[in-house]
Design a protein around this nucleic acid. Structure first.
Length: 361
RNA sequence: UGGGGUGUCGCCAAGCGGUAAGGCACGGGACUUUGACUCCCGCAUGCGUAGGUUCAAAUCCUGCCACCCCAG
């Protein structure tokens, strides 16, 4: 049986989730702190900047102690390996560009961990994301909205949340700014009050994801051909996993103008490069979609869409093609949509939903 | 082997006697809970080589070397 005012706090060891824990406690919830163990130290060189490393666990535990709440570590490394790392590697090998943080949110935080909360009788999962969840009485659906602090808004990485997940999730920082969070952490003497924000992929040491993939697969990357947009040979590439659509640096190709990756073909093991004007696409197809305020789109709607985490939303029109496919046509061409990345749709500060980019049309 | 042309940073390329532009690539940083993009900073005491003329040469002169083209 789930108790109404009980929560499991997802703590990363960072400032945000620590303050989220404090605020939840102050709201009268019965709280338990937790951390997901996502990989072993032998597998990954944990480093300070990532979330969920060893020192982060110490920080999270220290904060939990300070708050006087229990703190548990759950070993989810098997699921993480299957749902995040394996997918990550596979998508790169297929010429796509994965977003492991979104997968981790979907399958681990709001999947495994939320389930664990329920298993232990707790009604809510609390995270330190900057976004807001609201119940819409008219439609009886839960809505996901941007955070008040638009600079820090993280709704992009939460677009895949289901109604059930939204119903059982609390985001105490959604109405706050990052600086307010920091202040609270400092005022409360949290050890991580001044810790820098996490960045890069947590399971990839030094930010070198390609090395990680090579080590994971145990195979050296297959070199192949760089082609220009006319199909002529320009040079040898290091292996398709090293490239993503729109990439400029690291190609080693010199020309009159900067060269960017225009497409990656896994079958032919080729990477096509061209000038920046070759990267624009107006229409794209998204699969594995999720819609939040509505069950399905019966007709085309106008939205504002983002192709990447830090991007101003762009006006677009969306059609639903089938139960799992959206067609998104932007008013103006967009630069470098990459297969595997997430496209997220907004109406003002409301998240309509999103999907995984499958290609351009 | 004759005749012509060219040799400036990894690539392209300014310079035309007054003390080495720029772009690309590369390196570093900022930004960032993915990958990218973007922005900022750095990047030839030396201009194929050896001499010479000049107060002063990548720039003029001479030899040599390399590469390219045309003839054989």
């Amino acid at each position: 049986m789930l108790r109404d005012k009980s929560a499991l706090i997802a703590m990363s060891g960072g400032v945000d989730s620590s303050v989220a824990a404090l605020l939840t406690l102050e709201h009268g919830f019965d709280c338990v702190g937790s951390m997901m163990k996502l990989f072993s130290n032998e597998e990954v060189d944990c480093r300070e900047k990532s979330c969920c490393s060893l020192t982060d666990a110490d920080d999270a535990r220290a904060v939990a102690n300070k708050l006087g709440i229990p703190f548990y570590v759950f070993n989810f490394s098997d699921v993480f390996k299957e749902k995040v790392i394996h997918r990550f590697v596979e998508i790169y090998q297929n010429g796509g560009t994965p977003n492991p943080c979104i997968d981790c949110n979907r399958f681990l935080k709001f999947g495994k961990l939320l389930h664990r909360a329920h298993e232990t009788g707790r009604n809510y999962l609390v995270t330190g994301h900057y976004a807001q969840i609201k119940k819409d009485l008219a439609s009886d659906r839960f809505l996901l909205k941007k955070s008040v602090d638009l600079e820090k808004d993280q709704s992009y990485v939460l677009y895949a949340m289901t109604q059930d997940q939204l119903k059982h999730t609390l985001l105490p920082l959604g109405g706050m700014t990052k600086s307010q969070t920091r202040e609270i952490a400092i005022d409360n003497g949290f050890v991580n009050a001044k810790k820098q924000d996490s960045q890069d992929i947590c399971f990839v040491p030094n930010g070198n994801y390609a090395d990680f993939i090579n080590k994971y697969t145990g195979k050296p990357p297959a070199k192949g051909q760089f082609l220009d947009t006319d199909g002529s040979y320009l040079g040898e590439h290091k292996g398709i996993i090293y490239y993503t659509i729109g990439q400029r640096r690291g190609l080693g190709l010199s020309g009159q103008h900067p060269m960017y990756v225009c497409s990656v073909c896994a079958e032919a093991n080729t990477v096509t490069v061209g000038t920046t004007d070759k990267l624009n696409a107006k229409t794209l197809i998204a699969r594995d979609i999720n819609l939040i305020p509505i069950k399905q789109l019966d007709s085309a709607i106008k939205v504002h869409a983002k192709l990447r985490y830090k991007q101003l939303e762009q006006p677009a029109t969306v059609w639903q093609l089938d139960s799992d496919t959206l067609r998104i046509e932007f008013d103006a061409p967009q630069r470098a949509p990459a297969k595997g990345q997430a496209v997220v749709l907004y109406d003002g500060d409301l998240v309509i939903g999103g999907g995984t980019i499958d290609g351009t049309a």
